[in-house]
């Protein structure tokens, strides 16, 4: 078998890891504040359709890159209002956002279904650097959003672990009462991070339309990647840098079906190979559920629990 093709698969895995990292960073920041946002899939789709439709209308790539962020902010504000202010069930609210986002993206994208993508982000040309064996195709030759995402992950990691607001954020997820006693508003911290998180999720969605998909089709855009991103948060133990590693791993399982198809390897039916990323994610989730792994993971202690100051 051609070893080169697996190198390309690996390079593609790094590429598709980009939205996975962005979306799981968003989910991570949200969850660190103690709020669960299961709506990732809906945010991704809404981000994707926004990027595509604005591209069709204006043909400006930057508008398509950044406008989805606003969409994510609005969606996250609705989620925040429901679960932070009204203390509604976080899981059902997230699910509702998945259903709403799926429906709305399909509705808004109907008029351009099957159209070729109007704007795109091209991979950066690194010249000779890309010719370095192994390192070349793996590290160089990705699109700018990928490098931006790596940088963002490092910033997020520093923010969480080395800054005061990051400390407050971690404390809000673990011991909101303490944060409250310090005179910091738990509500504000949770709103801010839910909104930033939602913005990142929708931003991740724009990547699908600008760097990967060649045409808009609601069914085949995200294919459950939002849910894989949620599993990735657990895999990364709520730590940004580890998300990169996990995303590449999950990205590889997402990419393998395409490689096998391109190579016309039909030992296993393509439909069966397509189950791989979901089964792999499930397997990882299970492995991380053992009591030993659970102790090492350190999920935010007050995840999903609304904060009420004077609980009697």
């Amino acid at each position: 078998m051609n070893s080169n093709i697996w190198l390309i698969t690996f390079a593609d895995a790094i590429s598709i890891a980009t939205p996975l990292i962005l979306a799981s960073l968003g989910a991570m920041l949200t969850e660190r504040s103690g709020v669960i946002n299961l709506g990732v899939e809906g945010y991704l789709l809404m981000g994707a359709v926004t990027a595509f439709q604005l591209g069709m209308g204006f043909g400006n790539v930057w508008l398509s890159v950044f406008a989805p962020i606003l969409v994510g902010v609005v969606m996250a504000l609705v989620h925040g209002a429901l679960v932070i202010s009204l203390r509604a069930n976080q899981i059902v609210s997230g699910l509702a956002m998945v259903i709403f986002g799926t429906g709305l993206s399909q509705f808004l994208g109907k008029s351009v279904e099957g159209e070729r993508r109007p704007v795109s982000i091209e991979p950066i040309d690194f010249g000779r650097l890309s010719d370095i064996p192994f390192i070349g195709p793996v590290i160089f030759g990705h699109d700018p959003l990928t490098y931006f995402t790596w940088a963002l992950t490092i910033v997020a990691s520093l923010y969480l672990n080395r800054t005061r607001p990051g400390l407050v954020l971690r404390a809000t997820g673990d011991a909101p009462a303490t944060v409250d006693a310090q005179g910091v508003s738990v509500t504000a911290v949770r709103y801010i991070h839910t909104v930033v998180g939602g913005a990142l999720m929708a931003f991740a969605g724009s990547w699908f339309m600008l760097a990967r998909g060649t045409a808009w089709s609601q069914e085949s855009t995200t294919n459950g990647i939002g849910w894989i991103a949620l599993a990735l948060v657990v895999f990364a133990a709520w730590r940004p840098l580890r998300a990169i590693l996990g995303a590449v791993l999950f990205g590889f399982t997402l990419q393998v079906p395409f490689t096998l198809q391109a190579q016309q390897i039909n030992v296993v039916a393509p439909e069966m190979v397509k189950m791989l990323p979901y089964l792999a994610t499930l397997f990882v989730l299970v492995a991380l559920s053992t009591p030993r792994a659970r102790r090492l993971l350190g999920a935010p202690k007050m995840l999903g629990i609304p904060f009420v100051r004077d609980e009697r």
């Binding site: 059902v92 509702a96 998945v98 709403f100 429906g103 709305l104 399909q106 609601q218």
Partner: peptide, 11 residues
């Protein structure tokens, strides 16, 4: 898809 939009919004 308008039916799905309504569903999500209702929820």
């Amino acid at each position: 898809a308008i039916a799905t939009v309504i569903q999500g919004a209702v929820l």
